[in-house]
């Protein structure tokens, strides 16, 4: 029997996603190297420590612009509604593999993650620019740079922890990676995890 599939992400959307993902990995590797002395050797991924330091902010800007495109693609799918609140309150059931609420295109967890990522990205860009040498930092007062470094490291670490959850969720819910690699999901996947979206996409009653 032929698999029944629904298109979830177009090719441009997938390319956009993976640009952000690759930039994020590079930023996390170099950033963690600056944050944790014991991981400083990770700067070797970029050739020399100096290169890692120089490259990091430029990759950051690329990632921010690519994420901005994603933000405008998806923000209107991510307004939190009553079904999402139900989902968030019953997150324990979800963890056990159960489904909660009449979930649309994204569930409460995904929406929360979307806003966490958006907030962190904005903070990272702003604080990153304030700390960016040799181009911008010299124009800011030192106390502001101190705050920027604290904000940058804090939001980076919040984002990294968030992305670990994001990646794990994709690995845990089988069939999800395919949505971002091939662009499609099965009917069964959609019906189980995003029933309202499934009905919208197929016109089926259930």
């Amino acid at each position: 029997m032929k698999e029944q599939l629904i298109q979830r992400y177009s090719a441009p959307e997938r390319i956009n996603h993976w640009i952000v993902a690759v930039c994020f990995i590079l930023l996390a590797i170099s950033g963690l190297a600056f944050f944790y002395p014991a991981f400083f050797w990770l700067t070797g991924v970029f050739g020399t420590p100096q290169l890692a330091r120089i490259i990091h902010p430029f990759v950051g800007v690329v990632m921010f612009l690519a994420f901005l495109r994603q933000f405008f693609r998806y923000y209107h799918h991510n307004f939190i509604d009553a079904e999402d609140v139900k989902w968030m309150k019953a997150v324990g059931t979800v963890m056990k593999g159960g489904e909660v609420g009449d979930t649309g295109r994204y569930n409460g967890g995904q929406k929360g993650m979307f806003w966490l990522m958006s907030g962190c990205m904005a903070l990272l860009l702003l604080s990153g620019i304030v700390a960016w040498r040799p181009y911008f930092a010299a124009s800011f007062p030192i106390p502001l740079i101190r705050v920027a470094l604290l904000v940058h490291a804090s939001s980076a670490l919040a984002l990294i922890a968030g992305i670990i959850v994001h990646v794990y969720a994709a690995l845990w819910v089988k069939g999800t990676i395919r949505a971002m690699v091939e662009g499609v999901v099965t009917h069964a996947w959609a019906r189980k995890h995003h029933p309202r979206w499934y009905r919208e996409m197929t016109g089926n009653k259930r």
């Binding site: 593999g97 968030g162 845990w172 089988k174 996947w189 995890h193």
Partner: peptide, 23 residues
């Protein structure tokens, strides 16, 4: 925070197991 996120994922997967819909 980072260790908690990573360890949670690992132990969740080996106890609860994957969430399948497509068979």
């Amino acid at each position: 925070g980072i260790a908690a996120a990573g360890l949670f994922g690992f132990f969740h997967y080996i106890t609860v197991g994957p969430n399948r819909a497509d068979d």
